[in-house]
Design a protein around this nucleic acid. Structure first.
Length: 429
RNA sequence: UCCGGGGUAGCUCAGUUGGUUAGAGCAUCUGACUGUUAAUCAGAGGGUCGUGGGUUCGAGUCCCACCCCCGGAGCCA
C-alpha cells in the first residue's frame, strides 16, 4: 500500500510504501538515517544494517541529496524523530540518483538562489510561502463566489492602453503593436452591465525599471468591479476582503506560517473597520512631523512608512489629488481638486496592497480627462461607449497578490511569493 | 535613470602598508562510528581572484574603462 507522508499518523504500526526525494542522509556505520520529502510532508527513515538485506543497505549508502527513492517500512512512534514518528526501513529502492545538488541547507546569496529558482522551490520556506499564496488565491475565488460575483477573464494581449503608456511591454501582433495588459479594469467595467458584480484575476505586466522589494514586472492582481457602489461601499468591501484573506491563511496555513517564523500576533487582529485618513489630513500630519510635502504631490515611500507606523491595521488613504491619479477616477463633488479613490497600505512597511476608486460615469467629464492626460482618444472609444449606453455609478479596486502574501507571511521581498519571479533583469528560469 | 555597497573554490566568505606556494567553513570523495537532527572525527581533491587595459622588479590588493549583482530612490499593486 502506497501512502503519502501527511497521512502517516493514521498508519502507525503498519508497513507502508513511500515515494519521494531524499533531503539528506546520515550514516553511523551500522545505523543510518534518511530524510524523505514527498510533497505532502517530510519524514525520517531509519535503516538498521542487521534488519535489511545488503541491497537495501547499499542503496541507502548510494543516495545523494534529492535522489528519488521508494521506501517500504513500518511506521513507528518515536520521540527522537522530528515530527514524533518515523519509518523503520524494511527495503529501499533508488529510482533516480541525483547529481551533486547545488542548493545546500546553508546560506546562499539571492542571485544564486534566483538562478536556481527551479530547484529553490523545494526548500521548506519556499514551499511554505507558495502554499500560503495558493491558499490566498483560493480564498480570493471563494470570497467572490460566495458574494455572487462572476469571474471575467480579461485579455492579456491588448491594443488599447490601460494606464501609463511608458510602462507597457510591447509586442508584435501581425505587424501591429500590441501591449501586455497592465490591468483588466476597463474590461471588467464593460462586464458590469452584463453581470452586475464581477472580478478578474490574472497576471499583469509593468515595464517599470523598479528595483525594490515590492516590485515585479509580472505580478498577479485581482480586480473586482461593483455596480451601483460608491467609494464608501468600495472601502468596506476592501476591508472585508483583506480580512477574509488573512483569516483563511491563519486558519489553513498555521504550519506554513510557523516554518516562515511569522509572528502571527501581528495579523491575527486584522478585522474591519480599518483606519481611514484623507489625503489632505495625511499631508497635514506629515507636515506636523516635519516632512516636506506639498498638497498635490503623490506620497512617497517614506511618507507612507511614517503614516502606517501609527497603526497595526492596514490604513486607507482616500481622495488623492486628481493629478496624482488615473484619468478614470470620479471627481469628488465636495472637493473637485480630488478624486474619489483610496489606497490601502499594509502595516510593517509592506506598502500599498490595494488601489481603488469610484469610476467617472459622466461621459463628458471622462472625455475631458482623457484629453487632459493627452491619451489617444480613439483607443478608448469602446470604453466611452460604456458611459453612452446606460451609465451607472460603479467602483472597484485592484489587489496585488504577491504584496499581500508577502505581508501575511512576513517575507522581506515579494519575489519569493511567486513561483517564477520576473524582475527587471531576470527572465530565467 | 540616480545614490550607496559588492564580484576571490560548487556555496558563504576572509585576504594586513602591493611581496614568495591565495585561505577557512560548508559541499564532494575516501575511511571510522548503532540514534543522528545543519551528526561528529581523520584524510584527499578542488582557483582564468568579473572582463580588458595600465603602473610596478612584483598586483586579489593601486589606477582607468566596461560588464554583472545587491540595497535604496523615483513609479506603482
Amino acid at each position: 500500500m502506497s501512502v503519502v507522508i501527511k497521512d502517516l499518523s493514521a498508519h502507525i504500526g503498519e508497513s507502508v510504501a513511500l515515494e519521494g526525494w531524499v533531503e539528506t542522509t546520515r550514516s553511523h556505520g551500522k545505523v543510518a538515517f534518511l530524510i524523505l520529502r514527498d510533497g505532502t510532508g517530510v519524514v525520517q527513515g531509519v535503516v538498521l544494517k542487521k534488519a535489511v538485506d545488503d541491497a537495501t543497505w547499499e542503496a541507502h549508502g548510494s543516495l545523494t541529496q534529492e535522489s528519488t527513492a521508494r521506501v517500504v517500512g513500518r511506521v513507528k512512534q518515536d520521540d527522537r524523530a522530528p515530527g514524533g514518528f518515523e519509518v523503520e526501513v524494511e527495503s529501499l529502492e533508488v529510482m533516480a540518483l541525483a547529481e551533486e545538488y547545488p542548493i545546500q541547507p546553508k546560506e546562499h546569496g539571492v542571485d544564486f538562489l534566483l538562478d536556481h529558482r527551479h530547484l529553490w522551490l523545494r526548500s521548506s520556506q519556499q514551499r511554505a510561502g507558495l502554499k500560503v499564496r495558493s491558499e490566498v488565491q483560493q480564498a480570493i475565488h471563494d470570497f467572490f463566489y460566495r458574494r455572487d460575483f462572476t469571474r471575467i477573464d480579461t485579455p492579456i494581449l491588448t491594443g488599447s492602453i490601460g494606464e501609463h503608456a511608458g510602462t507597457l511591454f510591447e509586442t508584435d501582433y501581425f505587424g501591429d503593436p500590441a501591449y501586455m495588459a497592465q490591468t483588466g479594469q476597463l474590461y471588467v467595467e464593460a462586464a458590469c452591465p452584463a453581470f452586475r458584480n464581477v472580478y478578474c484575476f490574472g497576471p499583469t505586466f509593468r515595464a517599470e525599471k523598479s528595483k525594490t522589494r515590492r516590485h515585479l514586472t509580472e505580478f498577479w492582481m485581482v480586480e473586482p468591479e461593483v455596480a451601483f457602489a460608491d467609494s464608501e461601499d468600495n472601502m468596506r468591501l476592501q476591508e472585508e476582503f483583506v480580512s477574509y484573506l488573512v483569516e483563511r491563511a491563519l486558519e489553513n496555513c498555521a504550519e506554513e506560517l510557523k516554518v516562515l517564523e511569522r509572528d502571527t500576533s501581528k495579523i491575527d487582529h486584522v478585522k474591519p473597520p480599518f483606519p481611514r485618513l484623507s489625503y489632505t489630513d495625511a499631508v497635514a500630519r506629515l507636515t506636523e512631523r516635519g516632512h516636506d510635502v506639498t498638497w498635490g504631490d503623490d506620497l512617497g515611500a517614506s511618507d507612507e512608512a511614517v503614516l502606517t507606523e501609527d497603526y497595526d491595521l492596514p490604513l486607507f488613504i482616500y481622495n488623492y489629488p486628481k493629478e496624482a491619479k488615473a484619468f478614470y477616477m470620479k471627481e469628488n463633488p465636495d472637493d473637485p481638486r480630488t478624486v474619489l479613490c483610496d489606497d490601502l497600505l499594509a502595516p510593517e512597511g509592506y506598502g500599498e496592497i490595494i488601489g481603488g476608486s469610484q469610476r467617472e460615469d459622466d461621459l463628458e467629464r471622462l472625455r475631458e480627462r482623457i484629453r487632459e492626460e493627452k491619451l489617444p482618444e480613439e483607443a478608448y472609444a469602446w470604453y466611452l461607449d460604456l458611459r453612452r449606453y446606460g451609465s451607472f455609478p460603479h467602483s472597484g479596486f485592484g489587489l496585488g497578490v504577491e504584496r499581500t502574501v508577502a505581508w501575511i507571511t512576513g517575507r522581506h521581498h515579494i519575489r519569493e511569493l511567486i513561483p517564477f519571479p520576473r524582475l527587471m533583469n531576470r527572465l530565467y528560469p
